[in-house]
Amino acid sequence: MNKYLPLSERLAREAGDQWRPTLAEIEDVLGFPLPKAAQQAAWWGGASDKPHHRAWLDHGWRAGDLDRAEGTVTFHRDATAGLPKVVEAPPVIEAHRGVGGLALVGAGVAVIAGVGLLAARLTKGRKA
């Protein structure tokens, strides 16, 4: 069982688009103290398969805006949650000019050969 499940359940019940609990409130929800790393913004940010990230990501939330002075974290409902992921096209690799010229020559040769074969078949059909 994921120990961050109570946080997942709490976020699933949240009606608003934002929730700004104190770290103490989060600990109350979880029933155990947060690790010391939770005092750093990096622990809250990102999108990974770490159990604490899955607690909010799986319910369409993202965490951020750690306010160390106030001891709060702001969770925002992710407007893109549930939308299909955009796959970026691979970068276009520009061919060297010489390679492009060779490709054109090769294409021309293929067309000429094809026309020659077609002519040979047509001529053969007439003689028979």
Rank of each mutant, 00 (worst) to 15 (best):
L7M: 00
G106E: 11
W61M: 06
K36R: 11
A79C: 13
D17C: 11
A81R: 05
G106W: 02
H96M: 15
P90S: 12
R62W: 04
T72G: 06
K36S: 05
L66T: 01
L57N: 02
G106S: 12
D65Q: 06
T72L: 04
E27C: 06
H76S: 12
W61F: 03
A95C: 11
R121L: 10
T74Y: 03
Q39K: 01
K124T: 01
E27N: 08
S8I: 08
K124G: 05
R20S: 11
Q39I: 06
Q40K: 12
R62N: 13
G116H: 08
S8C: 00
V29C: 12
A89K: 14
P90A: 14
H96C: 13
G82R: 05
L66I: 00
R121W: 12
L57S: 12
L11R: 02
D78E: 07
A63H: 00
P21W: 02
G82H: 10
E25M: 10
A55D: 12
G31N: 07
A12H: 10
L34T: 11
E9K: 03
V109I: 15
L118H: 13
L7T: 05
Q18L: 02
D17V: 11
V29G: 06
A79T: 14
K3W: 02
P51E: 03
G108K: 13
P91Q: 13
G82S: 11
